[in-house]
Amino acid sequence: MVNKGFPKFGMSQAGAYVTALKNYNLPDFILKLVAKDTDSELLERGRIDDRLQSMNDNALELLNKIFVECEEDKKGKYAQYRFFAYVSSMYHKCEVLINESIPGKSGKDHKIPIAIKSNGMYMAIAFNKATGNAVNKKDVAKFYDIADDVKSGEHGTQLIDAIYGSSVGFKGDALVELENLSKSRKDDAENKLEFKTANFENRIYSVVKC
């Protein structure tokens, strides 16, 4: 397959990107998001290396920055895409929804950065702080309230996980606050909800159950 964009890098650079990237578990929706961002073509189906080779130079370079080099950008989009890919890897054969609007028991529609569905029901919701200061108590309280409202609503009956990711760390009192809020919940099937934090540091996510 001939990629129209290859002359810019030369085959060796594009080939090196493909060789590196094909070892990463890049979900389909991430490839589509990056293709859209870079106005790139993308094979709908096929082996991962064939699909990567169908993308233009800008797309391959962006994927490399996000997943291989783990670079950051001012808007926090790179960190967001890494987080989306990480969350999706935790739930195999599930539907991944980006910027999903989910109504809670309160009647308010909550915009959820990434939600996971299985058999038409929400299983997990996740938020991520990509830029700015470390996650604080106020951030955590807001996250908990949203998760609790969604869980209590008719769309959250099967919700089992609420994940808060951060590329800027968590303040100690924020972690204590989330743990206390989590422990305050009833442990019956109707109310059970696992709260987890995912801290991105040294190019990997470390997940802690609260």
Rank of each mutant, 00 (worst) to 15 (best):
G5P: 02
K8P: 00
K8V: 11
K8M: 08
S12D: 09
Q13A: 10
A14G: 09
A14F: 06
V18E: 01
A20T: 03
A20M: 07
K22G: 00
N23E: 10
N23C: 00
P27F: 05
P27V: 00
P27W: 02
D28C: 02
D28W: 03
K32Q: 14
L33S: 11
A35E: 01
K36T: 11
D39K: 15
L42Q: 05
L43V: 02
G46T: 03
I48H: 04
D50V: 03
D50L: 10
L52T: 08
S54D: 04
S54A: 07
M55Y: 08
N58V: 04
E61K: 14
L62M: 14
L63Q: 04
K65V: 01
I66V: 13
I66P: 06
C70D: 07
C70F: 10
E72R: 13
D73H: 02
D73E: 07
K74W: 06
K77V: 11
K77T: 11
Y78G: 00
A79N: 08
Q80L: 11
A85D: 00
Y86E: 03
Y86P: 00
S88F: 01
S89F: 01
M90E: 07
M90V: 01
K93T: 07
E95F: 02
V96Y: 13
I98S: 04
N99K: 14
N99G: 09
I102D: 03
I102N: 01
G104T: 09
S106M: 09
G107K: 10
K111A: 13
I114V: 15
S118P: 00
N119P: 02
M121V: 13
Y122D: 01
Y122E: 01
Y122L: 03
A126K: 07
A130P: 10
T131C: 05
T131M: 04
G132C: 04
N133C: 04
K137V: 11
V140L: 03
K142T: 09
Y144W: 12
D145V: 06
D145Y: 12
A147R: 08
D149M: 04
G153Y: 09
E154P: 10
H155L: 13
G156S: 02
Q158R: 14
L159I: 05
I160D: 03
I160N: 09
D161Q: 02
G165K: 08
G165W: 02
S166H: 05
S166A: 05
F170D: 00
D173I: 04
V176Y: 11
L178F: 05
E179I: 06
N180S: 11
N180H: 10
L181S: 03
L181M: 14
S182G: 11
R185Q: 14
R185E: 08
K186A: 14
E190L: 14
K192S: 13
E194H: 12
N202H: 10
R203V: 03
I204E: 14
Y205H: 06
S206N: 13
S206R: 14
V208C: 05
